[in-house]
Design a protein around this nucleic acid. Structure first.
Length: 879
RNA sequence: AGGCGCGUGGCUCAGUGGUAGAGCGCUUCCUUGACACGGAAGAGGUCGGUGGUUCAAUUCCACCCGCGCCUACCA
């Protein structure tokens, strides 16, 4: 197959923007990226990460999403029916925060709904006023409006990058379908007994006023101080504990020491008496106490940390919750059964100073109180033993929060995961992680779980629980008998919808009902992305066909959240893994090797980079980076990508400008070239099958530069326009174009625009595949079978040319310089092997005569310039 | 503190049980007929350190050092 085009009709350079606009339009028109519901071809389903649209766009998005796209495009060319959806993760706190800031509003559940409320972005003047209070329904409307805008911006970027997403499969995690499926998931988990609600100490963010899950917690180093407090012992004596949280002293319900610690053995079983509040608390032994830390004996409070919760449970200690949901110390009265004190009047006086304070203020105040008490107690037994000693220690924060998390007793819904630990670890082992060591992240996290999954959030913009509660005759809520929504009614909002068998007038009335005000953790919905896209119970046939999905691409920091919860859901609902393979991408780092993030202000926006270098070049940068590897942002790599695009464009222009009569590839050099190309294609396919797109790109690119443009095209240039050797000419042109046809397809997943552009010049019509992206991936059948070392003649010719170029350069000549004399030595087998290629070698070297002479002793395949004489410089003949 | 990953030319990164690779940058040269948004040639590395296994180690093993990430660490 020989195609001849008129190169003068083409511009000197590839124009990315024009090509991108044109092909985006045509691909959409032709449905190139559509999943075919009816096709018999095997499906390849990709569980794309729905990006959080309220974040800002940056090059990190470009990076990982392009890496997914290249695999989608490859599979499509392999003939797979590629299922490549895109979703938007819009529900959750980031959106709430963005809406609050953008419109300067706050959501309050009791504020009545204002129909038709329209707000604009708040200006400076508006921001000086207190935030406007609006209803939950209005607030959600604003969230939806703003995320719709954000989603548009993302979609524009995805399209500019050439992501071959099937946009007919677009979804969002707050959309009707996602809400219905999330609520259905909840009902299914209820049915299976995998979800429960309990009133218990839970990780709580006092600013957002919501519970959070273990996965959303991170440690941050915080400056604090050890305070040494003296406790009295009932019956006489005293001891000193060390604490970083003296403000929890009123919540102290016990004292713990190590059972083998000689210093405190005598105290075990007695009761200690707290300073200031004079509350007697039990002293008990625990192996968990670190004898080296502090004074080796500590106070147990409700609740300072996770160990306090554990001791409280194990020892059956009293509950004295002093921290409120808002992070302020709650008002309370000592002297009752819950707050016994040997001196209630004094305790109440002390606590009176603390109630209503923020934690930090409370700490300051209590230290003052202790100091005063110490002054009046004299040297004998001061409650505050010495001045606080500063230290830095890790403290748990909600990852989006600003103040430390507290354990606060609230009623929350949990999904059982602890009892499935082993099964979940086993499920993780069945997934092919790329790179493989990422499976360790999953295993470590899963094995070390110590809390069930808290799925309820006291927030607004999220998927509501499909649950109501009956109200007793006395108006109290009966949480033990939740009323579940009917499956056919989903999605429901219990705050505005009415449970079966009730009427709206009974809302909040004794004997009536109340809606569950909480929403799901956003991961509760996001973890259903495979079910959302495949259709699950709505489209059981399609779900069966696509689930488990083939591929989940995502980055490593959300293995413990998104990957983990998705595996949890697949297991709990269907005893299945959600996908067969996970491709874990790295991060984009700024040039100083810091992770790019909006908060650091080091974000590079992708749009101007695409304007400057073109989408293909930007894709090249993303695709040269291997899975799991972080990459520093470096504009030079975009330039390299652009260079490749230009080279591909120009080499194609040249190859397609050749003409010859149709004829088979017969020349040994051409056959050898195609043999090496066949090996390259085979190797690239192997690597892509292992998801190693970067390795495949490296292989293809190397062959393109060095094999195709630097050497092969130079070697056959003369023969390809020979008037005297029509068969040789046909062979050369045919091989050069076959090579191009293969290389273009090998590059197509990486550089979709330039390859499509070139393909359209002639190959589209000649092959009958109007888009290269639906053309078959190069396979062994279309290239001459490569026997053992079938490519040797090509390697030798390249090595010869290399040696001649070196010799010319050393002699002060340039590549194109004619040679008066050229004699090159090689061993006899090499000379013999190159016999049929001599004419090509002469032309490429710009030399006459025999060129090659056999010399014993030389390594086969190596060449040695014996004599090289530059010809006189000739004026170029006028054209 | 544990786990994982990384340490290769100035920079970014491939790679391999048998005399070190690429791109960028650098030096020199070239507007030759696909390409100056290009091309040719060249300089540049005791492959983090110390031991071990081996005929042979940058590659395998052990230990150590440095960096990064994940997890744990709130008394």
């Amino acid at each position: 197959m020989i195609v001849t085009i008129d190169p003068s009709a083409l511009g000197p350079h590839f124009e990315p923007k024009a090509a991108e606009d044109k092909w985006d339009r045509l691909w959409s028109e032709w449905g190139v990226h559509r999943f075919d519901e009816a096709a018999a071809a095997p499906a390849f389903a990709i569980d794309t990460p729905p990006p959080t649209v309220s974040g800002s766009l940056h090059v990190g998005h470009v990076f990982s999403y392009t890496q997914t796209d290249v695999l989608a495009r490859y599979q499509r060319m392999r003939g797979k029916n590629v299922f490549y959806p895109m979703g938007w993760d819009d529900n959750g706190l980031p959106t709430e925060r963005r809406v609050q800031n953008y419109y300067h509003v706050r959501c309050e559940s009791h504020v009545p709904f204002e129909p038709g409320l329209e707000l604009r972005m708040a200006d400076d003047a508006a921001r000086k006023q207190p935030a406007r209070r609006i209803s939950r329904k209005n607030f959600i409307e604003l969230c939806l409006a703003l995320t719709a805008e954000d989603e548009k911006a993302f979609k524009v970027l995805w399209q500019r990058l050439g992501l071959s997403v099937d946009w007919s499969l677009e979804y969002s995690t707050i959309g009707d379908r996602s809400r219905r499926l999330a609520q259905w998931s909840f009902l299914d988990l209820m049915r299976k007994g995998q979800v429960y609600q309990v009133e218990a100490p839970t990780l709580w963010d006092v600013d957002f006023r919501t519970a959070v899950a273990q996965a959303e917690v991170e440690d941050r180093p915080v400056r604090g101080a050890f305070h040494k407090l003296r406790f009295a012992v009932e019956g006489g004596g005293s001891f000193v504990i060390a604490t970083t949280r003296p403000e929890l002293l009123p919540a102290c319900v016990g004292v713990a020491a190590h059972p083998d610690d000689e210093r405190y053995r005598g105290l075990l079983g007695k009761r200690a008496v707290t300073p200031l509040f004079r509350v007697p608390v039990p002293v008990f032994p625990s192996e968990l106490v670190d004898r080296e830390k502090g004074t080796g004996i500590l106070m147990v409070c409700t609740f300072g940390d996770a160990t306090d919760v554990q001791w409280w449970r194990e020892q059956g200690l009293a509950l004295r919750q002093v921290i409120g949901r808002d992070g302020l110390l709650v008002p309370l009265e000592f002297g009752s059964a819950a707050f016994p004190s040997l001196d209630p009047a004094r305790a109440n006086q002390a606590y009176g100073r603390l109630a209503g304070l923020k934690l930090k203020e409370a700490q300051k105040t209590i230290v003052e109180l202790l100091r005063d008490a110490s002054a009046s107690a004299g040297d004998e037994s001061p409650p505050l033993v010495e001045e606080p000693q500063p230290l830095e220690h890790p403290v748990k924060f909600y990852e989006q929060g600003d103040r430390p998390l507290e354990y606060i007793t609230t009623r929350q819904w949990f999904v059982k995961i602890l009892e499935h630990k082993q099964a979940l670890v086993a499920a993780g082992e069945r997934i092919a992680w790329h790179p493989d060591f990422m499976r360790m992240r999953f295993r470590n996290w899963t094995e070390n779980l110590n809390l069930d999954w808290c799925v309820s959030r006291q927030r607004y913009f999220g998927v509501p629980f499909p649950v109501w509660y009956p109200l007793r005759a006395d108006g109290t809520t009966d949480f033990e008998r939740p009323i579940l929504a009917a499956e056919s009614a989903l999605p429901v909002d219990p705050m505005s919808d009415v449970p079966p068998g009730f009427s709206e007038s009974q809302r909040g009335q004794p004997g009536g009902f109340s809606g569950e005000p909480d929403v799901f953790d956003t991961w509760f919905t996001s973890s259903l992305s495979p079910q959302i896209v495949t259709g699950w119970f709505e489209k059981p046939e399609r779900h069966k066909r696509l689930f488990p999905m083939e591929l989940r691409p995502q980055s490593h920091e959300i293995i413990r959240t998104w990957a983990f919860y998705t595996i949890v859901k697949a297991w709990l609902h269907e005893r299945e893994i959600p996908w067969r393979a996970a491709a874990i991408s790295g991060w984009v780092l700024d040039p100083d090797r810091k992770k790019m993030s909006k908060s650091k202000g080091n974000v590079v926006t992708p749009t101007h980079i695409i304007d400057q270098f073109g989408a293909d070049a930007v894709r090249y940068w993303s695709l040269a980076a291997r899975l799991g590897t972080d990459t520093a942002f470096d504009e030079k790599v975009f330039a390299v990508g652009r260079r490749l695009v230009m080279k591909l464009y120009n080499a194609s222009k040249y190859a397609l400008a050749q003409s010859a009569s149709e004829g088979p590839v017969t020349h040994p050099l051409d056959l050898a070239f195609l043999a090496r190309l066949a090996e390259t294609a085979a190797r690239a396919s192997e690597l892509l099958d292992e998801l190693d797109y970067a390795g495949a790109l490296d292989v293809v690119e190397r062959f393109f530069w060095s094999g195709y443009t630097d050497n092969y095209l130079e070697l056959v240039k003369a023969r390809a326009r020979s008037e005297s050797d029509p068969a040789g000419r046909s062979s050369a042109v045919s091989a050069a174009q076959t090579g191009l046809r293969v290389l273009l397809r090998l590059f197509a997943p990486y550089l979709p625009y330039v390859t499509e552009e070139v393909w359209s010049w002639g190959f589209a019509a000649a092959t009958g595949h109007r888009s290269i992206h639906r053309a078959p991936w190069p396979n062994a059948e279309e290239l001459p079978s490569s026997g053992a070392d079938a490519g040797r003649a090509f390697d030798l010719a390249c090595a010869f040319l290399d040696e001649v170029r070196r010799g010319k350069s050393a002699a002060g000549g340039t590549v194109g310089r004619q040679l008066a004399t050229l004699r090159v030595a090689a061993d006899a087998s090499t000379v013999a092997a190159l016999g049929p290629c001599l004419a090509d070698l002469r032309a490429a070297a710009r030399a006459e005569g025999e060129l090659l002479e056999a010399r014993p002793g030389l390594e086969p395949g190596t060449f040695q310039v014996v004599e090289l004489v530059l010809a006189e410089k000739q004026a170029r003949p006028e054209a």
